[in-house]
Design a protein around this nucleic acid. Structure first.
Lengths: 209, 209
DNA sequence: TATTTTATCCATCAAATGTTGGAAGCGGTG
DNA sequence: CACCGCTTCCAACATTTGATGGATAAAATA
């Protein structure tokens, strides 16, 4: 299982890699139940049984996508953490918003996929763990909202969740929200970043209430 | 079609009403594709063909739920609009957050359903229009972020969208986020309201940047 | 009571969907 | 060439799922 994933990550041009990438996109668009194995196979351009040959069950593939995303996001957060070291809180927030937006706008299926995990139940369930909790704590510390790794205030965590969600929503909901604003894609990116900063920075830089 | 819906809305204890309520919940939890007509029938406690007898196709039922929610939310926003008249901006925001949170926490399937509409594509699609655009404009005006009904600034709309989404996310994502905060349901409600106010009010009450 | 309408369920169908077996192609190795 | 492992596809199967027909009961109507 894990070895398959490793192989796919290491060589994205391999068949396993191509399948993983396609699966991520289709699952991200239609959710677990909305996606059929035939849709994924078609996206890769292979026969359905070739897909099964490489990956086995649908659920297996789905869980692999989750693990893959977990790793990718972890990397991204590390990258941000390094970039913001030593900056002021306002600057840290700005950088974090910019980097995260750029990454997610380039990979819109990522935020879509994550939102499906949050809000959609999956029949036959079996709680797949997407490691948000870990991320949230790391972000809270990187942003300087918490000092002690052992104890992060509820307020800090909740705030980070709110921010994190706002980003995901704007990216995944572009098709829905952009027509309402009547602007094009590039303008949308700018508006999203500005809006996030407009809302978030005052909240965190104000005097403690 | 519409007459069926009207009947169901008028008499929630009728079979049509019970079906509509159950459908809303199940669709909200599992999304369109994740929901089977049999699941809905079972939730009502009737045979599947009885369901078809009353509502016809699955898609029909789904669209009825959307129309039903549209109406319900429109009412809720009117209610808020009346409550906040004449108050200060900060107070308007507080009241809006409180009322909206109370409503959605009491009907969690609502926010779930809406989020599915935003982010999930539905195979066979055919754009169902959920009238968010209308809501957003109304809220912007009610909150005093825009003066002219004809022209609402992009910034105002985008801000309202961000707020609106934050609320939905916290409610729908309770199962996901609450364990991270390690608090119980009642505390969660308080934290959500506080966090939303903490983040949003400073943004909108600060001096114009 | 007789008849018609309404509502419910059982059994079933056809299509979609997850999944598998086996044949065929293809590259390398003896 | 003959053999072998790897990959791919065609065909098929079992289950799930959307949807329907017809029998049956309950309620309304005459």
């Amino acid at each position: 299982m894990v070895s398959k994933l490793e192989k796919a990550r290491q060589d994205p041009s391999s068949m396993k890699g191509k399948i993983l990438a396609a699966a991520r996109k289709v699952f991200g668009e239609y959710g677990y139940h909305g996606t059929t194995t035939r849709m994924i196979a078609k996206a890769v351009g292979i026969d359905i049984s070739t897909l099964y040959y490489h990956w086995g069950e649908k659920r297996d593939l789905y869980e692999s996508v989750i693990m893959d995303l977990n790793e990718e996001i972890r990397q991204k957060l590390l990258e941000i953490e390094n970039k913001v070291k030593g900056k002021s809180l306002a600057t840290r927030l700005e950088i974090a918003i910019d980097v995260m937006c750029d990454y997610l706008f380039s990979n819109p299926e990522v935020s879509n996929f994550i939102l499906f995990l949050y809000f959609g139940k999956t029949r036959g369930d079996s709680s797949l763990n997407f490691k948000v909790s870990e991320y949230i704590s790391n972000i809270a510390i990187a942003m300087g909202l918490a000092l002690d790794k052992k104890y992060i205030p509820v307020k800090a965590k909740a705030s980070v969740i709110a921010v994190w969600n706002s980003v995901l929503n704007f990216i995944s909901g572009e098709d829905f929200f952009r027509p309402m604003l009547d602007i094009d894609h590039d303008e949308y990116i700018v508006v999203v970043k500005d809006t996030l900063k407009f809302i978030l920075i005052p909240a965190f830089t104000q005097k403690q209430s």
